[in-house]
């Protein structure tokens, strides 16, 4: 499962930082955090049941648009709520 998040704070052209393996996406919760300001959108996905804290969450971060910054805030929230996750910055 792949969920892509981006906020209206950023107007830049956005894309996934690297190609994701199909099997990896099929088997896992993968969230591409494309921009800063996506953090509240992540919480919405959790509240709507699209993301569960019962399974690991893989956050995909790029080198632009405060993507890594937002990923850190989200991962910190996951850890505070006893979930498991990690940030991936390359394939």
């Amino acid at each position: 499962m792949l969920i892509t998040l981006s906020s209206s704070l950023h107007k830049e052209q956005l894309q996934l930082p690297f190609e994701l393996d199909d099997q990896f996406v099929q088997d896992n919760q993968v969230v591409a955090v494309l921009t800063g300001g996506s953090e509240a959108l992540f919480l919405q996905q959790v509240e709507q049941g699209h993301i569960t804290l019962d399974k690991p969450i893989y956050l995909i971060a790029s080198e632009q648009s405060n993507s890594l910054a937002a990923s850190c805030e989200i991962l910190s929230w996951i850890n505070l709520h006893h979930g498991h996750g990690q940030i991936r910055t390359h394939r």
Partner: peptide, 10 residues
Amino acid sequence: YLLSKPIANH
């Protein structure tokens, strides 16, 4: 630390 257990963003 940052990719696994960060203390938030800033």
